[in-house]
Amino acid sequence: MSQMEKAAPPNPCSAPTGSRFGPPLSDGGELPFDLMLDVLLRVPGKDLCRLRAVCRRWRAATTDSVFVREHAARHGVQIFLANLRNDDAHVHVVDISGAVVKRINVSAAHRLLSARASTWPASPTGRTAVACSTRRLVRSCPGLRCRGREE
């Protein structure tokens, strides 16, 4: 294994300049996109929702139904409580594709969460229910924190 230190790696933080694998993809750094998808499948749901902002291609890919299904197969169905579009009247239950599964009015959501914060919402598989409150919800519901399955 004496050849190991042969190639001096380029600075990983620099803009891609093309590599021995051909020109970089504009949206995928130097990694071919199908391999990047394989990476994204391993990212847990909440991180995934955040990194949709990274670029259009990631956004399109990670909201695709095939991707969402495959992600669910790995991580279990993940559901988030969110406050979307500055809608003060409702709390939204969204899946990882960003689709709103249900809208609950805020006071009902508060009651529900205060009563059953530790058990709700349960996913069909019982594996990974993830509830994430909005900042607003956290403020008005002391003790309520994002909880999710840490990997």
């Binding site: 991180d47 929702c49 955040r50 949709r52 902002a53 979307l84 994430c132 900042r135 994002c146």
Partner: peptide, 9 residues
Amino acid sequence: MLEYGWAYE
């Protein structure tokens, strides 16, 4: 990021 603010908390 504005829309999905909750994911950044």
